[in-house]
Simulated assay, not measured.
Amino acid sequence: MTQRAEHSTVMDRLAIDDLVTGYAIALDDGDWPAYRALFTDDGRADYRSAGGIEGTTAEIAAWLTEVLGHFSIRQHLIVNRRITLARRDGAPGDTATVQADYLNPMRLDGMPAEPGDDPAAPNYTCAGRYAFTARRTPDGWRLSEVVVHEKWREVVPAGE
């Protein structure tokens, strides 16, 4: 591999890592225009394993607006990112996959509060693994598919 190809690979990996970070921030901030901008025009997402829906980016953003609106606090921690760039003639290609684990503590609004409860403490946590597919576009790397594989969740009843 030439230095140019190595440099390109590093730059692609950094851009894709930034894309995944942008995904987490958009979800946590409820920034749905930013969320949609992370995807290709034909982008899709599948949240069915977490009790959600599968659909276009616009359909998913509308669903997330409703569902995540029930949580006053959200923090998506996306870790253990394994980025695999497609190769073309020994050089980086225009597609990539990312496998990444997530831990998502949140605060569900409307749960009965007990005296002494911390209103900022998470009471709903879920975790699993994301499968991201990204594609190089004229505007940079964009997500073409996101699939959530939820492994577990925990809801802490009030007073515990």
Rank of each mutant, 00 (worst) to 15 (best):
Y130N: 00
V20S: 01
D28P: 05
E114H: 15
Y124N: 06
V148Y: 05
M111D: 03
A58F: 03
S8N: 11
M106E: 04
R153T: 14
V10W: 11
A37Y: 05
D31S: 13
I16K: 02
Y130A: 00
G159R: 06
D46E: 08
A34H: 07
A91Y: 04
R129Y: 04
L68M: 15
T97L: 00
A127M: 12
A26M: 05
V147N: 06
T125L: 10
T97E: 02
A91M: 08
A15G: 01
D117G: 08
D18Q: 13
T56G: 07
R48G: 07
R44Y: 09
A37G: 09
A50Q: 09
G128A: 08
E59S: 14
A26E: 09
P112H: 10
H7P: 02
P119E: 12
V20T: 13
G30T: 07
G43P: 06
A45R: 04
N80T: 13
G140K: 09
G52R: 05
R81A: 05
E6A: 15
A86K: 06
L68R: 14
G116E: 11
T56P: 03
L77V: 14
R142V: 03
G93S: 01
R153C: 09
D28G: 07
I53C: 08
K151L: 14
A50L: 06
R87E: 15
I60K: 03
T84L: 12
A5H: 10
D46I: 08
L38Y: 05
E66D: 14
T57P: 12
W63E: 05
T9L: 00
R129A: 13
G159S: 09
G93A: 07
